[in-house]
Write a protein that binds this DNA or RNA. Structure first.
Lengths: 204, 204
DNA sequence: TGGTTTCGCTACCGCGGGTTTCGATACCGA
DNA sequence: TCGGTATCGAAACCCGCGGTAGCGAAACCA
C-alpha cells in the first residue's frame, strides 16, 4: 500500500558509530583503567563527541554493558559429548573472553558500579548474565540455583583474580578451577534426573 | 634516663574517634550503598567533621580498608583436627563476616575501586589479604599459589553473589561451596609433603 | 533552496573526593 | 589566670566526572 514505507527517513543519517565506540571503550579501559576511562576520553579515542555517545546510550553503565555484549557475542554452541566437556569449554571460553584486553577491566568495573546501583545491576543481570545462564541451564540440564552458583564461582573467581593482580588468570589456574568444579558437577544432580529438558542425556 | 619520655605531648589531645568512624562507615555503607556512602555522610553519622576523618586517613579507600580490618579482626585460630576442617571453618568464617551488615558492600566497593587504582590494590592486598593468606598457608601447609587460588574462588564467589543479588550468600550455598572446594584440597598436595613448615601434620 | 535530522562544540549543573583556612576549644605548664 | 600548643569543626574552595542544554554547522532529501 504505502509505497515508501521503508524509505530512508528524512534528515541527516546517523553515522555508524557503534563499532568505533565499542573498540574505543575497550581500548580506553585497557589503557587508562576503568575509573579513568571517562566518557569524554572514550569519545575522544573513538573520534566522536561526548554528546553523540549520550545520544545513543543513556548512561556509562549501559554503554559498558553493550560493549561487553558486543565483545562476548552470542552464547557459543556449547557443544560437547558430555556435561563435563560442556562445562569445561564454557569455563575456558569465559576465561578467554575476560582475558582479552580491556574486557576483564570493563567487566570488573561495571560489576563494581552495579554493587551500589540496583538499576544497573538489573541491566547487568538481565542483558549480560541471563542469556548465557539460560543456555548453560539448557545444555547441562541443571536447575537454575546450581547454574547460578557455578556462575558465581567461575565469574567471581576470574574477576577476583583480575581485580587483585590486574592481570587475567593464567591458563594453569583456569584448568585448576575447571578440575575443582567438574567433580561437583558430576556429584550434584545425576544426569538421569533431567526432568523437563527435551535433551535427555544418556543415562549410562 | 629522660624522666618524661612517655609524657602526654602538649596541646589538645586527639579525641578517640576510630571506633565511632568505623561503626559509622559500616552503617552508612549498609544504609546508602557504597557509592552514596560519602565521606561527608560517614562523618555526619559518626558525629565528626569531614576534616577530622581526613586528618586520620589519607583517602576513602584506606579508611574502608582500615574499617574492614577492624571488622574482620586478627586471623582466627584456624584450629581443626584436619585440613578439611580448617578449610571448612575458614570458608564459613569469611562468609559470615562478609554477611555482616555493611561489610560485604564495603568489601565489594573497595575491591571495585581497587580495580582501577594500583596503589589501593597494593594496600588491599598487603594489609587485608596477606595476613589471612599467610595464616592459611601455615595452617594448611599449602604453597602460596594454591592458597591464592582458593582465596580467589572463595572471596570471589562470595563477592560476586553479593554484587549480583545485593544480599550475602545463603548458608546452603556456602556449604555447597565448601563441598566443591574440599575435594580439591584433598586431591591437591598430599599432607606428607609439608616441607618447611614447623607444624608437621600427621602423615597418616 | 528549504526542510529535517544529526553532528560537534561549548557551557553548564550536581556531586563527591580531597584541601585549605580560620576561629574555637582543650589540654599543659608557669 | 595566662600563654603555648595542637586539635576540632565549619565553611569555602578546587577539580574531575557523569550527564544535560543550546546552538550553529553539516548531511541528506525533495
Amino acid at each position: 500500500m504505502a509505497s515508501a514505507v521503508s524509505a530512508r527517513p528524512p534528515g541527516r543519517p546517523r553515522t555508524g558509530v557503534h563499532a568505533a565506540v565499542f573498540a574505543a571503550t575497550l581500548s580506553a579501559v585497557h589503557e587508562f583503567g576503568y575509573a579513568r576511562a571517562t566518557v569524554e576520553r572514550i569519545a575522544a579515542v573513538a573520534g566522536v563527541a561526548k554528546t553523540t555517545i549520550y545520544r545513543r546510550w543513556p548512561s556509562k553503565g549501559e554503554l559498558i554493558v553493550d560493549c561487553l555484549l558486543n565483545a562476548f557475542g552470542p552464547p557459543p554452541p556449547l557443544a560437547g559429548a558430555s556435561r563435563a566437556e560442556i562445562m569445561s569449554s564454557a569455563i575456558h571460553w569465559i576465561a578467554a573472553k575476560i582475558g582479552e584486553p580491556g574486557v576483564g577491566d570493563a567487566f570488573a568495573g561495571v560489576f563494581s558500579d552495579a554493587v551500589s546501583d540496583p538499576a544497573l545491576r538489573e541491566i547487568l543481570s538481565a542483558r549480560l548474565q541471563e542469556p548465557y545462564r539460560l543456555a548453560l541451564q539448557d545444555a547441562l540440564g541443571e536447575p537454575e540455583a546450581r547454574v547460578l552458583l557455578f556462575t558465581d564461582v567461575v565469574v567471581g573467581t576470574l574477576l577476583h583474580r583480575m581485580g587483585m593482580t590486574g592481570e587475567p588468570m593464567a591458563d594453569a589456574d583456569v584448568t585448576a578451577l575447571v578440575e575443582m568444579i567438574l567433580p561437583a558437577l558430576q556429584r550434584g544432580s545425576p544426569p538421569s534426573l533431567n526432568l523437563g529438558s527435551e535433551r535427555a542425556s544418556e543415562p549410562g
